[in-house]
């Protein structure tokens, strides 16, 4: 018999009983399927990584780093603490440190809050009990703030509140971090990162973390936008590119004079046609991510090396 703690509740597992079976026996609702470590439905997270390492077969590098494991494969021999993945809904207070307009549509918000995260993950920001939106973290640990790139939708309730009403020193609440979109590559791995619009936010965070961790493999960053005037952080990325030989940034807009750079999908297919052994990061809208994921996979990237972050519409409402 082994005692474990599940989301604060002490649970005693029977001899030879997996974590999944124990939780189900006690009536907890845990998604599950094959019970063979294959379907990955019963993903859980643990506080202590060394105790679940043998229940992580088949998981992605990001999932392993987040201490995720498969409940159906885990037979604990000593006490451990487990929870559902992304179960943490407790909110913390954040204070507005800076709010800056980057272009016609995009605002940069910097908050101070005590949050442990990986650049590229996302948090949910709350205006009040009824209104919340998720945004990706563009900052790195070296910066004493959390940075977000927020697109202003004139019809969007949250972004309009943020642009029109929120000011320095105001406080708001956030919860997270969430998601598996962060730097997990080995130093020599080639990386291809493709962002549409404010999809640049997590990618900016990940690029900075990779370079700070002395990533040595080539990093190609492709930034797409409808119009060239929608780009932001051109100077910042240019400065990074000047500083690091292995970083190359490509700016592609639909209104480009050059037909060669007007179509992001074609551009990637012809310039990055061989992606085996690459780590690929994609961030943008649903159809963008879907199309690019297929391209990256067909170009040879392994499915587990393709990381995707998709903008979510909250209840179908604009941001």
């Amino acid at each position: 018999m082994t005692a474990i703690v599940f989301e604060g509740e002490p649970i005693t597992l029977d001899e030879g009983e997996t974590v999944l079976d124990g939780l189900l026996r006690l009536g907890h609702s845990i998604p599950h399927g094959c019970r063979s470590g294959v379907c990955q439905s019963c993903l859980l997270s643990a506080t202590e990584i060394d105790k679940v390492a043998n229940a992580q077969t088949g998981l992605s590098e990001a999932q392993k780093q987040l201490n995720f494991f498969l409940g159906c494969q885990c037979l604990p021999t000593e006490a451990m603490t487990v929870a559902r993945v992304d179960a943490d809904v407790s909110r913390i207070k954040a204070t507005v440190m800076e709010k800056t307009q980057l272009n016609d549509q995009v605002w940069r918000l910097r908050l101070t809050a005590d949050l442990d995260y990986r650049p590229g993950q996302y948090v949910t920001l709350w205006r009040d009990e009824n209104l919340a939106r998720s945004y990706s973290l563009a900052s790195t640990h070296e910066q004493p703030w959390l940075e977000f790139h927020i697109r202003h939708y004139p019809e969007g309730e949250f972004s309009s509140w943020l642009v029109e009403s929120l000011s320095k020193d105001d406080t708001l609440e956030l919860n997270g971090p969430l998601g598996q979109f962060f730097y997990t590559a080995q130093s020599e791995d080639p990386m291809l990162m493709i962002a549409m619009g404010t999809g640049l936010a997590p990618i900016w965070g990940i690029v900075n973390e990779a370079l700070m961790k002395q990533h040595r493999g080539p990093i190609e960053v492709v930034v797409g936008a409808k119009q060239a005037k929608d780009f932001y952080y051109r100077e910042e990325l240019g400065a990074l590119q000047a500083q690091f030989d292995n970083l190359q940034v490509h700016w592609l807009s639909l209104d480009s004079d050059s037909p060669e750079t007007a179509n992001l999908y074609d551009y990637c297919q012809s310039n990055f046609s061989q992606l085996s052994d690459h780590k690929v990061y994609l961030c943008g809208g649903t159809s963008f991510v879907k199309k690019l994921r297929r391209y990256a996979f067909m170009a040879g990237a392994s499915m587990r090396d393709i990381y995707a972050d998709t903008f979510i519409a909250f209840g179908g409402e604009p941001g």
């Binding site: 094959c34 470590g37 294959v38 088949g58």
Partner: peptide, 23 residues
């Protein structure tokens, strides 16, 4: 969804290869 389909393909191949499965 490609990611979940990929996981299903893996379960299918595991079964076809006679590996541990409950398909």
């Amino acid at each position: 969804d490609m990611e979940s389909q990929h996981t299903k393909q893996k379960a299918f191949l595991t079964m076809a290869f006679g590996g541990p499965n409950s398909y």
